[in-house]
Deep mutational scan, measured.
Amino acid sequence: MAAGGDHGSPDSYRSPLASRYASPEMCFVFSDRYKFRTWRQLWLWLAEAEQTLGLPITDEQIQEMKSNLENIDFKMAAEEEKRLRHDVMAHVHTFGHCCPKAAGIIHLGATSCYVGDNTDLIILRNALDLLLPKLARVISRLADFAKERASLPTLGFTHFQPAQLTTVGKRCCLWIQDLCMDLQNLKRVRDDLRFRGVKGTTGTQASFLQLFEGDDHKVEQLDKMVTEKAGFKRAFIITGQTYTRKVDIEVLSVLASLGASVHKICTDIRLLANLKEMEEPFEKQQIGSSAMPYKRNPMRSERCCSLARHLMTLVMDPLQTASVQWFERTLDDSANRRICLAEAFLTADTILNTLQNISEGLVVYPKVIERRIRQELPFMATENIIMAMVKAGGSRQDCHEKIRVLSQQAASVVKQEGGDNDLIERIQVDAYFSPIHSQLDHLLDPSSFTGRASQQVQRFLEEEVYPLLKPYESVMKVKAELCL
Rank of each mutant, 00 (worst) to 15 (best):
S454N: 05
Y13I: 13
M312D: 00
K470A: 13
R141M: 11
G156A: 08
A136K: 08
D182E: 05
A453E: 02
L186E: 02
A260Y: 06
K284I: 15
E81R: 06
D120R: 11
W43V: 03
F30R: 04
A344F: 05
G104D: 05
D333G: 01
T38D: 01
E277N: 01
A322L: 08
Q409V: 10
I386Q: 12
S306A: 04
T239V: 03
W39K: 01
Y21G: 10
G104F: 14
I123L: 11
P293E: 00
T111S: 09
L165G: 00
I403E: 05
A431S: 06
F195M: 15
K284P: 07
S447W: 14
K199P: 00
F236V: 09
Y432T: 06
V414G: 03
I436M: 08
A18K: 10
H159R: 00
R20L: 04
H400L: 05
L444Y: 05
V457R: 02
A410C: 05
L314M: 12
S434V: 10
A335H: 06
H400I: 08
S438K: 10
K477G: 12
F30I: 00
F74K: 10
G394P: 13
E473H: 14
F379K: 00
C113T: 01
I385D: 06
Q409S: 07
V29N: 15
D182V: 02
C304W: 02
A235H: 10
D248K: 08
E328C: 14
Q63M: 12
H442W: 04
R404G: 08
T201I: 01
S323R: 04
A143F: 15
S253T: 11
S151W: 12
T94P: 04
Y365E: 14
R337L: 02
E283Q: 15
M312H: 07
V414Q: 03
Q428L: 12
I57S: 01
N421H: 09
E70N: 04
T450S: 04
Q164V: 12
H91S: 09
L193H: 00
Q408M: 05
S447R: 12
N118H: 06
G109V: 02
V254A: 08
D268K: 01
V413D: 04
H400F: 04
L128F: 05
S454I: 14
A260P: 01
E280I: 00
D73G: 11
F232M: 13
L406S: 07
M26Q: 10
L124D: 03
A127W: 00
Y466M: 15
R452C: 13
P467Q: 15
Q409G: 10
K284N: 13
M389K: 04
T350R: 06
D32M: 11
I269N: 01
P471M: 14
D32W: 09
D223P: 01
T382V: 09
H263F: 00
A77V: 12
A110I: 07
W39D: 15
L444Q: 05
A136G: 07
K402I: 12
T350M: 05
L331R: 05
E213P: 15
P24W: 07
L311P: 00
F28V: 06
A431T: 13
I269L: 03
E462Q: 11
G418E: 02
L444G: 10
A150T: 15
L272C: 06
E464M: 07
C180D: 01
L124I: 10
V315Q: 05
R125N: 04
L108I: 13
F212Y: 08
L46G: 01
I249R: 01
Q205Y: 01
R426W: 11
L319S: 00
